[in-house]
């Protein structure tokens, strides 16, 4: 191969002390270390695509089979909170991207504040999600746990939703299939929220490490890779939002 790499190799032999402290022993250069871990993160995201892919596949089939149930099920979701959460998550993606930018530019305070903002927005997202879930519990819309089809066999019994959409009553078997909609709703938003919880947890640790200057010494691999994860979780929500909330909002 090229001469340069032979020279690198020669330098490696000369002594380990020339490497920065964050370089792991089995890498030849920090560039190789960055490339390898960054690529690994992408490969991991591939598995995540396929993981959520199975859920999207199930969604696609059942939405086509039980379209009326999906429409009236989605009317039970709050448009306000759903759109709010999309906004929160997109802004958090921006603050995360700024975090990576600050790490690249070695701006410690900027990084810390970006991470704190991302952390708070992430918490905000989970807070809103829990408000929505609580409402579902109260309305008996958690599949398998005292599930009630009343709001679908007799939409007028739920005046708040009814005055907005004037849904027609569903026949009992189709109304029962709203369980499938809510099952997918909980499975998809639950999986997504699980990823958010993990992300917020890692952010909390990162904030402390960033304050200690861990990522602004030129070694920002971890921030970059976590950014990829965070953006990926954002992308999942970008699809969940239209699929779950926006099925048919017109009356």
């Amino acid at each position: 191969m090229s001469d340069s790499q032979v020279i690198v190799h020669g330098a490696e032999k000369a002594g380990h002390h020339e490497h920065p402290s964050y370089q792991r022993h089995h890498f030849e250069t920090t560039a190789q270390q960055f490339d390898a871990t960054n690529f690994a993160m992408w490969i991991f995201l591939l598995t995540e695509i396929m993981f959520f892919g199975g859920l999207f596949m199930a969604y696609l089939i059942f939405r086509n089979w039980y379209y009326p149930a999906f429409v009236e099920g989605s009317h039970q979701l709050s448009m306000f909170w759903g759109t709010m959460n999309t906004t929160v998550l997109i802004v958090s993606s921006f603050t995360m991207a700024m975090g990576v930018w600050c790490a690249e530019k070695k701006l410690k305070n900027g990084l810390v504040w970006s991470l704190i903002l991302t952390f708070l927005l992430g918490l905000g997202f989970l807070g809103i999600k829990s408000i929505e879930w609580t409402e579902k519990v109260e309305k008996h819309h958690v599949p398998g746990f005292h599930y009630s089809i009343q709001a679908f066999t007799n939409p007028a019994s739920d005046p708040e939703v009814y005055k907005e959409y004037h849904d027609n009553p569903l026949p009992p078997d189709m109304a029962a299939h709203t369980q499938v909609y809510f099952f997918l709703y909980f499975a998809m938003t639950g999986m997504h929220a699980l990823h958010m919880v993990i992300g917020v947890g890692i952010l909390a640790v990162m904030i402390f490490l960033a304050r200690a200057g861990a990522y602004t010494n030129g070694h920002f691999t971890f921030v970059e890779n976590f950014g990829l994860y965070w953006h990926f979780v954002d992308i999942i929500w970008i699809f969940l939002y239209p699929l779950l909330y926006l099925i048919s909002r017109h009356t």
Binding site: T47, E48, M50, F51, F52, G53
Partner: peptide, 8 residues
């Protein structure tokens, strides 16, 4: 690419 689909 395959295993996550089994997982889900």
């Amino acid at each position: 690419l395959g295993t996550p689909v089994l997982a889900i």
